[in-house]
Simulated scan of single mutants.
Amino acid sequence: MSTINFAEGGYRAIPAVFQYSGGVAALPGFSIRRVRFLEPVPVAEGFRRIEEEIRAAGRPLTAFCACELRSPAPFTDEGFRDFNRSYVEPLRRWGVVGDDLNPVARSNVCPEFDPPTEPSFHAFAFTVAEPESRATFVIAGSGEAREGGARYEDATVRPGETSPDAIAEKARYVLGEMERRLGLLGMSWREVGATQVYTIHDLHPFLASEIVPRGATRGGLTWHYCRPPVRGLEFEMDCRHVAREAVI
């Protein structure tokens, strides 16, 4: 089974690792709404504000389906595991995370300039009831490492290399992973409304040869001058199509 229905939240998810899913898509009768904070909000306060927003929309907390985080600097493998264990605890209390599935899609990146002083929410998404809505979805962020291994370094494409050729190869891997996840949800680049790239390396050497021809920029491309969340990773992407977006 490529996806698992999370009926309590009104969406289905691509099973992945304990800290996040590979992506989510609204179930029939629902659509996904994205909300961005004007300034990053520390995680604990962010969960409180997210709860207020979801309840104000008349939705259960299980409707929480995706988020985008900002962290001060890339983590070590151990530090990332520690952060993830603390991050999922509020989701357990909300009834979102169970013993065998975390359905929430996520990205977590580190701004190179003016980073937050602690891990913070940049944006989040949740489902709302909309019987006649188009298909909406969020693909979780992915860097150039296969997920689920003991160490990111062991699963990273060309670890330690940052030449233009190496960055292009990393980007090809990530683009392929985006396409794999889109396919699991029954989607393609044609349905994507927004694509985001996170890297401090120059995109231009391979933008026209690798990214644009695939159709990954049909809805535009937002380049965040950020690093992926784990030391040694250099390139990350996510993408989405949502029904509404707001800034608070």
Score class of each variant (00 low, 15 high):
residue 223 W to N: 02
residue 86 S to M: 09
residue 176 G to R: 07
residue 206 F to Y: 15
residue 8 E to V: 02
residue 61 L to K: 09
residue 12 R to M: 11
residue 222 T to C: 10
residue 195 T to H: 05
residue 169 E to L: 13
residue 8 E to K: 12
residue 158 R to Q: 13
residue 210 E to G: 11
residue 62 T to S: 15
residue 187 M to Y: 11
residue 123 A to Q: 03
residue 90 P to C: 09
residue 63 A to W: 00
residue 97 V to P: 01
residue 95 G to F: 07
residue 46 G to Y: 02
residue 219 G to Y: 02
residue 167 I to L: 14
residue 244 R to G: 06
residue 188 S to V: 10
residue 189 W to G: 01
residue 168 A to R: 11
residue 38 L to W: 05
residue 164 P to S: 11
residue 204 H to M: 13
residue 142 S to G: 06
residue 238 D to S: 09
residue 36 R to N: 07
residue 231 R to G: 08
residue 127 T to S: 14
residue 36 R to T: 08
residue 6 F to Q: 01
residue 68 E to K: 14
residue 21 S to G: 10
residue 115 P to M: 09
residue 15 P to R: 05
residue 85 R to L: 15
residue 243 A to Q: 10
residue 122 H to P: 00
residue 86 S to E: 10
residue 10 G to K: 00
residue 110 C to L: 03
residue 242 V to A: 07
residue 166 A to K: 10
residue 103 P to H: 08
residue 146 R to L: 15
residue 198 Y to L: 05
residue 106 R to S: 12
residue 59 R to D: 05
residue 188 S to R: 09
residue 14 I to S: 02
residue 5 N to A: 09
residue 228 P to Q: 01
residue 67 C to K: 05
residue 86 S to Y: 08
residue 24 V to W: 01
residue 79 G to Q: 08
residue 86 S to R: 15
residue 88 V to R: 11
residue 7 A to I: 14
residue 216 A to T: 09
residue 139 I to M: 10
residue 196 Q to H: 11
residue 151 R to E: 13
residue 199 T to K: 04
residue 51 E to R: 15
residue 179 E to P: 00
residue 173 Y to C: 06
residue 29 G to E: 04
residue 188 S to K: 03
residue 129 A to P: 09
residue 57 A to Q: 14
residue 9 G to D: 05
residue 41 V to W: 06
residue 48 R to N: 09
residue 118 E to P: 00
residue 53 E to R: 14
residue 63 A to R: 02
residue 24 V to A: 05
residue 84 N to I: 09
residue 205 P to R: 05
residue 78 E to V: 15
residue 29 G to H: 00
residue 124 F to Y: 15
residue 214 R to E: 08
residue 102 N to R: 10
residue 21 S to F: 00
residue 149 G to M: 05
residue 38 L to F: 06
residue 58 G to H: 05
residue 222 T to W: 07
residue 23 G to M: 01
residue 106 R to A: 11
residue 19 Q to T: 12
residue 111 P to L: 02
residue 216 A to R: 00
residue 171 A to F: 05
residue 166 A to G: 07
residue 44 A to W: 07
residue 203 L to S: 03
residue 156 T to F: 09
residue 119 P to A: 10
residue 185 L to Y: 03
residue 124 F to N: 06
residue 192 V to G: 03
residue 4 I to Q: 08
residue 147 E to Y: 12
residue 170 K to L: 08
residue 59 R to N: 10
residue 168 A to E: 13
residue 4 I to D: 01
residue 224 H to Q: 11
residue 223 W to S: 06
residue 124 F to T: 03
residue 100 D to K: 15
residue 108 N to Q: 14
residue 139 I to L: 14
